[in-house]
Amino acid sequence: MNRLFLALPLAAALSACGSADEPPTDLEAARSDGEAQALARNIEAGDFLDLALGPKIAGPQGEEVESALSNAEGNFADMRSFVACPAAMAVCDPQTAPEGTIYTYVHVVFPGEDNEAGTGSGEANDSSDVERATSFRMTQPATGFTGAAGYSKDEALAAIGMKADVVITCDEGALVWTVSAGDGGDQWEQAEPLTFWWQSTVPPAGPAPAYAILANYTPATGSGPCPAAAPGAVNACLAPSLDGSED
């Protein structure tokens, strides 16, 4: 299958981390031919604050979907998600949206819990105390992905500090945000929000079990807005590589 990007393995990302006393971590330093190939195809991360978002899609659960990322041991993150249309649109309704509309999928992820009694998954999340979260990802292909994705750089700075490093790659058509904070010191941890976003030409069909976090070295999964099935839609992760080769 043709792919434009490759996912940087978690072990490789962790091996690139330095100590808390070192300069900002640099996930751009490849240590093998495979890593070099993956890093050369990273997605350039856009800042969430630079987006001009319009109205949100209102689904059965309202404009925002709240969920928990969990496994058999308990909940490891709260997630609040929404899908927005461009700023120029007055209403975000896929049934009436013009052809070519770009939908921005936004996921605000709180490792452990969001510490708000009326949101997230509430007291059920108290079973997890996340000291280190290292990635957020999709577990299904990003149907209609345009190639534009990013995160909130201000939130990463607030949570982790100057050494924060987030690299966006693809894994079999799914997006992966690898978060590195180096060894020791501040990490992306309990109740610290990080906002991740990506854009698609395909509107959501509704919440689906398509998202995951790696927290305390443990994977946990949950639901969020996911594009509808669209066999003809392009996914930038699965486009031919820039040099015309196939992976």
Rank of each mutant, 00 (worst) to 15 (best):
179 V>D: 07
167 V>I: 15
169 T>P: 01
137 R>S: 00
79 M>F: 10
144 G>V: 13
147 G>T: 01
76 F>T: 07
184 G>I: 01
158 A>I: 04
183 D>M: 13
164 A>T: 12
84 A>R: 08
104 T>A: 11
112 G>D: 14
117 A>M: 03
166 V>E: 10
127 S>G: 12
121 S>F: 13
170 C>Y: 10
157 L>N: 09
123 E>R: 10
157 L>D: 10
139 T>F: 00
95 Q>W: 12
171 D>V: 06
83 V>N: 03
177 W>C: 05
135 S>Q: 11
111 P>T: 13
77 A>G: 07
86 P>E: 15
102 I>L: 15
151 Y>P: 05
146 T>F: 00
96 T>K: 11
168 I>M: 05
97 A>K: 06
76 F>S: 08
90 A>D: 15
152 S>H: 10
108 V>D: 08
165 D>E: 14
141 P>H: 06
151 Y>M: 10
69 L>E: 06
180 S>R: 13
119 T>S: 11
94 P>G: 04
79 M>R: 15
129 D>C: 12
171 D>L: 01
118 G>S: 07
154 D>M: 08
121 S>K: 11
159 A>P: 07
149 A>P: 01
125 N>V: 02
178 T>R: 14
149 A>H: 01
145 F>P: 01
137 R>K: 02
133 A>E: 02
86 P>W: 10
83 V>G: 08
106 V>E: 10
148 A>L: 07
180 S>I: 07
183 D>P: 02
152 S>R: 09
93 D>P: 02
70 S>L: 09
159 A>K: 09
104 T>V: 10
85 C>E: 02
104 T>G: 13
176 V>W: 04
89 M>G: 05
142 A>V: 04
133 A>F: 07
184 G>H: 05
132 R>S: 07
113 E>L: 09
157 L>R: 10
78 D>V: 12
121 S>T: 12
152 S>P: 08
110 F>K: 13
185 G>W: 03
124 A>I: 08
155 E>K: 09
73 E>G: 05
71 N>P: 00
70 S>Q: 13
131 E>H: 15
78 D>M: 08
95 Q>P: 04
69 L>A: 05
95 Q>H: 14
96 T>W: 12
81 S>C: 15
187 Q>M: 12
122 G>C: 00
168 I>G: 06
92 C>M: 04
112 G>E: 14
115 N>C: 00
178 T>I: 08
98 P>W: 02
102 I>H: 08
135 S>M: 12
101 T>W: 09
69 L>F: 06
71 N>I: 04
91 V>N: 00
83 V>W: 05
161 G>R: 03
161 G>I: 01
145 F>R: 05
115 N>A: 01
116 E>T: 11
180 S>D: 07
149 A>W: 01
114 D>R: 02
94 P>M: 03
173 G>I: 14
93 D>A: 09
115 N>K: 02
185 G>M: 05
169 T>C: 02
151 Y>H: 06
111 P>K: 12
138 M>N: 00
102 I>T: 15
